[in-house]
Design a protein around this nucleic acid. Sequence first.
DNA 1: GGCGGAATAT
DNA 2: AATATTCCGC
Length: 314
Amino acid sequence: MTEYETGVHLDEDENDDAGNDDRVHEWELGLPADDDLTPLSQALISPELASAFSITPEPSRTLLDVNRASKSTLAALRGNSALSQGFSTNNNFKSAESIRHSMDAEQEEPNRYDSRKSQRIESPEEADSAVRADNSVDDPSARTAKRPRLVWTPQLHKRFVEVVAHLGIKNAVPKTIMQLMNVEGLTRENVASHLQKYRLYLKRMQGLPGEDLSSSDQLFASTPVPQSLRENGAGTHSGHGNGHIPVPVTMPYGATPIMPMPVYGMSHQGPGGNGLGYHGFESNPYMVQQRDWSGNRYGQSVVSRTHPAGPNEK
DNA sequence: GGCGGAATAT
DNA sequence: AATATTCCGC
C-alpha cells in the first residue's frame, strides 16, 4: 500500500528558489551546534551518576543498564513537566516521531497529520507528551500504527556515525546501534535501512575517495567517516589496531536523548530535477540560513507524540 | 522466532 | 533519492 505516500509527502515540489529559505529549522537555535554535541567518546555523566544508574563498563551489561538508565530518565522527564522544562534549557528532547514527517504549516495534509490544526501543541509539556495525529488515537499502541518516514537529519546521522564508530564495524548491528543512539521511537528497521545505505556509501568511498562532493550523498558527507570505519572491517584480531572497542561502549547517549527535530522535506524530486539537494552548502551542510522567523506561522513545529507504549522494546 | 543483511518496493 | 518492507539465511 502506498498510504504514507499519499498521506505524507515530505517533499513538495520546491518551486521555491526564493521561498524555500523560510523553512527555518527553529530547533537549530536550541541546539548545541551539532559539533558541540557530546561525542560518544566522552562521558556524558559523572561517575557518580553513572554508578547511580548502575552503569558499568561491562560489555553485556552496559547496554542494558544504559537502556534502563535512559528509560528512567525519560520516565522521569515525562512525569515531571517542570523538570522537563528545566532540562530543556540545555536540550529539549523529542521523540523520533517528532522528526518523522514534519513539514511546515504551509502545505495541507488532508489525510493525516493535520493535527496541527485540530490541536495546538505549543507548550513544551504538550509537545513531548503524547500528542499525536489522529491516526493513532484509535490505536494507542502505536505499534500497528504506521510511523511516518523517518528523516535522517545531519544530527541524527552524526549520532549514528558516532555510535557505529565506537562500536566498530563488527558490533555495529542495527539493534545495538538503535539502543545506543537512544532516540525515542527509532526502530531497528530504521537503523537497519540507514546502515545498509551507509555501508554502501563507505564501500563506494573506499574505491574512489574524492568523488564525494559531486555524487555522494550529502547527508553522509555531512559527517566525516571516522577512521575506525574506513579500515577493513575485518579486524579478526582483537586487542588493538583499530582503536575501537569490541566491548564496552562507554556511554551512549543514555541520559542524553538526541533531540530529533522536525525536518522539513527537502527532497527535490521534481521531474528532471537535478537531484542536488540542500541549498548549495556543500562545505557547510549544517549551515542553515536563518531567516526571520518571527513571522513563523506554524503553530508548532513538531507533531509530537511521545511513545504511548514502548517503541523500542519488544 | 528474532536478527542481520541484501534485495526489492514505494 | 531516501526510506521502508520483504525475503532469506542464520
